[in-house]
């Protein structure tokens, strides 16, 4: 008969520092959640009950309704610049998916491929590429937005939903360094062995080396996707004819009285935020894990 031995938990002293940090963090969570919970409550309050609530905000409204979500869904329409017809929520979500999907794909694959080229081939120009990334990350450039807009207008990526991703297909990001360290950590023996077996450079990249970075690729794509989905400032300027959910919500928030007041506005925001919150919760462990995990484990 096997005897199970319980592992002895190390004795941990309760420390004043930890008590203070614990209390601070509890306060942090409460303060962070308080407006969100308030918002969730308010999103179920009808306009009249909300007006009454404003006179006595210490007492929460007693009657709740799902109408704000139903009306919010129906009112989720926006007239893009230069158009005479409104776009509905499905069109806006489709545009957001195209914008976020293409941009995050470009912003993930390009640094990965450039990092692969720079790390796996011993050419001087590979080191130049690495140097470019370091220098551009260290040197902050401020105020080039007007120039970028003008260049985008001249090239044709401005207000072009299907080509806008080109502007995001750059390798000057921290993800380049991340992929570079992963590819550099994989022994060259893998490449040499594959070459002896007759594999060409493309096959070596796709079948031998990339699988080591697949996990990181997935996380980087997800992080980029969440960023692009949540972003409204870039599409607000660069894609005026193709409103994305963020742009639409920002417009609603400027003219909320037209959209059933604050309760319906908050309901509308929750409608479009729920998919991304669900996605983030589903992958929260992956998102918060160490991104440098990858390559070969010793």
């Amino acid at each position: 008969m096997m005897i199970k031995i319980k592992p002895i938990k190390p004795h941990r002293k309760t420390n004043a520092l930890y008590i203070v940090v614990f209390i601070t963090l509890i306060i942090y969570v409460v303060v962070l959640l308080m407006p969100l919970i308030w918002g969730l409550f308010i999103s179920f309050v009808d306009r009249d009950a909300y007006s009454e609530y404003l006179h006595n905000p210490l007492v929460l409204p007693t009657s709740y309704t799902f109408d704000n979500y139903i009306n919010g869904f129906a009112d989720f329409q926006i007239k893009p610049l230069g158009s005479y017809t409104d776009q509905n929520i499905f069109e806006i979500v489709f545009q957001t998916l195209v914008y976020s999907g293409l941009c995050s794909l470009a912003a993930t694959i390009v640094p990965c491929i450039c990092a692969y080229a720079s790390a796996r081939f011993n050419f001087k120009f590979g080191k130049v590429v690495y140097g470019i990334v370091i220098v551009t990350m260290a040197i902050p450039i401020v105020g080039n937005l007007p120039s970028e807009i003008r260049v985008a207008q001249a090239i044709g990526t401005f207000d072009n939903l299907w080509l806008f991703w080109i502007m995001k297909a750059n390798f000057l990001t921290i993800y380049f360094l991340l992929f570079h360290s992963i590819f550099k950590g994989i022994p060259m023996a893998y490449t040499e062995a594959a070459k002896i077996d007759g594999a060409n450079n493309f096959r070596i990249m796709v079948h031998c080396i990339m699988p080591f970075a697949l996990g990181t690729l997935g996380i980087v794509f997800l992080l980029n996707f969440i960023n692009f989905w949540n972003d409204y400032q870039i599409p607000y300027y660069y894609l005026p004819s193709y409103p994305v959910v963020g742009t639409a919500v920002f417009n609603f928030s400027l003219h909320y009285e037209r959209y059933g007041g604050i309760p319906q506005l908050i309901a509308m925001i929750f409608i479009v935020a729920i998919p991304i919150i669900v996605l983030a919760i589903a992958f929260n462990k992956k998102l918060m894990s160490n991104l440098s995990d990858g390559g070969i484990k010793e």
Binding site: Y28, V29, L33, G39, N230, G246, V249, S253, I269, F270
Partner: peptide, 16 residues
Amino acid sequence: FLFLPSIIPSILLTTV
């Protein structure tokens, strides 16, 4: 929870 504000759309956080 410390990471949550980086995930939630900033427009939701600010509006609420």
